[in-house]
């Protein structure tokens, strides 16, 4: 009789956890405001994007924290989609398709896939706990949002910064 209760409890836990995951997977949560965010403009402290970019390159950004994992690509002029993947990850494949589709159809957007287990330093520095995790970087390389789990195309498009920042 105990065994039956244990079984029901295990199934209940799985259903609650799985439902929570299904609802939150792929949702982007903002981490930093993009360069040229309206609030900075209003305060009259908004430097030109070039200056901002120059300053940001000297700062520690998500892009610099990628280190060796990011040498092969330039930052996108509008956004860079950094996808952390691993070998044993079914939703990584779907995510790759969605993000490369966005990169191919949206000018100035670059997709970069990082194998998390071969870049554990970057994985730790950026606090990646799951694959797939997608970071959206602004043109200066700062992280503006991240999503754990496979995002849908509309979720990506709604989160990448507006085309005209100047």
């Amino acid at each position: 009789m105990t065994g039956l209760w244990v079984a029901l409890a295990a199934i209940a836990i799985a259903l609650v956890f799985g439902t929570f995951r299904a609802l939150t997977d792929g949702r982007f949560r903002g981490t930093h405001k993009p360069a040229g965010h309206p609030s900075l403009v209003e305060e009259g402290r908004h430097p030109s994007l070039v200056e901002e970019g120059r300053r940001a390159r000297l700062e520690t950004t998500a892009w610099t924290q990628l280190g060796a994992a990011a040498t092969s690509t330039e930052l996108g002029e509008r956004a860079t989609l950094v996808q952390f993947s691993s070998a044993f990850c079914a939703p990584c494949r779907v995510t790759r398709r969605v993000l490369s589709d966005v990169a191919e159809t949206t000018p100035g957007v670059v997709h970069l896939e990082v194998d998390a287990e071969h870049h554990l330093d970057a994985t730790r520095r950026l606090g990646i706990l799951r694959t797939p995790t997608t970071l959206i970087l602004d043109p200066t390389g700062r992280e503006i949002a991240r999503a754990a789990g496979a995002p849908r195309k509309d979720q990506v498009l709604a989160t990448i910064p507006a085309r005209d920042l100047t």
Binding site: A69, A70, T73, A87, S100, P107, V110, L112, V114, D115
Partner: peptide, 15 residues
């Protein structure tokens, strides 16, 4: 204005 690329580092090739 078209830096459209899809690059991967060290990831497994698509089966």
């Amino acid at each position: 204005m078209s830096t459209t690329a899809s690059a991967r580092t060290g990831a497994r090739p698509e089966a």
